[in-house]
Design a protein around this nucleic acid. Structure first.
Length: 257
DNA sequence: AGAACCGCCTGCTTGC
DNA sequence: TGCAAGCAGGCGGTTC
């Protein structure tokens, strides 16, 4: 499932592929998605990531917002092929972008404003002081907090598990019990892991593919996610999986306190 | 107000 | 083998 590194990978590839190009057509193939009329002739002037949202800025000051949710993918296609589960097509003169989404959770829409904040995006304008003022007193599990998009945008289940493991913090700890040095450690490792995962073009543990259909390589670096009953690469203790809310959390009971 | 829970979706895996 | 149940989970909305 696409999280920040995967969405960032797509944004970088989209930027190279469609900036300064004019849209030549748009087609919805899912009645759930809103019709987006009169896109023909508009030019894409920028591609931005805000949390896990992809923003295509157009030359008339409107924005196409794409959120891939669980199973969404974007694929650049130049030939006349038609994969399964195509929900939306955006055409350019030299090819087209397909939104492929078996589970139909992904959303696409046209907006007049770009109001997603960057202040809670770890790799953009993240404001640690502001974050701690608003979040550090909360009585939720630290892992739940990390996955709250209003608190920390872009972190999903895989990277939340990985960041906590590298920070040696138990996923059961309440946010209001973390010490200042633990928060610093968490922010630092989150940024490091995001950077490493972006360099590897994301984690293809299941169906993630980049704009050109290629797998990422960060799945080879995972320390805990998907490694239930396998030995921790740090201490050798078996990795444990538990349910937190409705989500699987993987952690090392020996390393993470 | 804040924490917990629900519903949207459907392909794939597991169990009888 | 076949079918049903269970699972994957981001996130906005609802409930407690």
């Amino acid at each position: 499932m696409p999280e920040m590194p995967e969405v960032e990978t797509l944004c970088r590839q989209l930027r190279n592929k469609i900036c300064q190009k004019k849209i030549t057509g748009c087609r919805m193939d899912d009645a759930k998605l809103p019709a987006m009329k009169n896109l023909e002739g508009k030019e894409v002037i920028a591609v931005e990531r805000r949390g896990k949202t992809i923003c295509l800025s157009l030359d008339d000051e409107s924005f196409i917002k794409i959120h891939l949710r669980m199973s969404g993918r974007l694929l650049w296609v130049e030939e006349a092929i038609k994969p399964k589960y195509v929900r939306w097509t955006l055409r350019f003169s030299d090819g087209k972008i397909l939104l492929i989404d078996p589970r139909r959770f992904a959303t696409v829409n046209l907006q007049k404003t770009n109001r997603e904040s960057l202040k809670n995006d770890l790799m953009a304008g993240f404001d640690e002081k502001r974050f701690l003022e608003s979040q550090a007193k909360r009585k939720v599990n630290i892992k739940t907090l990390m996955m709250d998009p209003k608190a920390m945008a872009g972190i999903g289940n895989i990277y939340a598990c990985e960041i906590l493991h590298r920070s040696k913090i138990s996923p059961f700890r309440k946010a209001d019990a973390l010490t200042p040095s633990e928060w610093r450690c968490l922010f630092k490792n989150a940024k490091i892991i995001m950077k490493e995962a972006i360099e590897k073009r994301g984690t293809s543990i299941s169906d993630w593919r980049d704009l050109y259909g290629r797998k990422g390589e960060y799945q080879d670096e995972l320390q805990v996610y998907g490694r239930e009953a396998m030995p921790c690469r740090i201490c050798g203790e078996n990795i444990v999986r538990v349910k937190q809310g409705s989500r699987s959390t993987y952690y090392c009971p020996c390393c993470q306190k």
